[in-house]
């Protein structure tokens, strides 16, 4: 279980290149570093639901990413807050 305030990196992984899949981790966040805001609950893994497979519940977190990120736009002090499953997060 991740703690609020913990620094995490979104896995820089691209299952899309390996075959059919459905991923709820946006492309623009792969490999980015953020901060855990809070645990939102545990939910069935959408990567399994998308194929009607048995879908074990996974921990879902609100993770904050400070702007600007890799784009030139975006003002310092502003942030993105995104729902990300634990299996997409690693310690940073």
């Amino acid at each position: 279980m991740l703690e609020a305030g913990q620094r995490v990196r979104v896995r820089d992984d691209w299952p899309e290149t390996r075959g059919p899949c459905h991923i709820r981790t946006p492309h623009y966040l792969r490999g980015e570093i953020g901060t855990v805001e809070r645990h939102l609950g545990d939910f069935p893994n959408p990567e399994d639901l998308a194929f009607a497979r048995p879908a074990p519940a996974k921990a879902l977190y609100h993770v904050r990413f400070d702007l600007p990120m890799h784009w030139p736009e975006g003002r310092a002090g502003d942030a993105l807050v995104v729902e990300i499953f634990e299996h997409w997060l690693e310690a940073a």
Partner: peptide, 10 residues
């Protein structure tokens, strides 16, 4: 401060 919430999951 602006916070954008990207509604990606549940």
């Amino acid at each position: 401060k602006l916070r954008v919430v990207d509604s990606t999951a549940d």
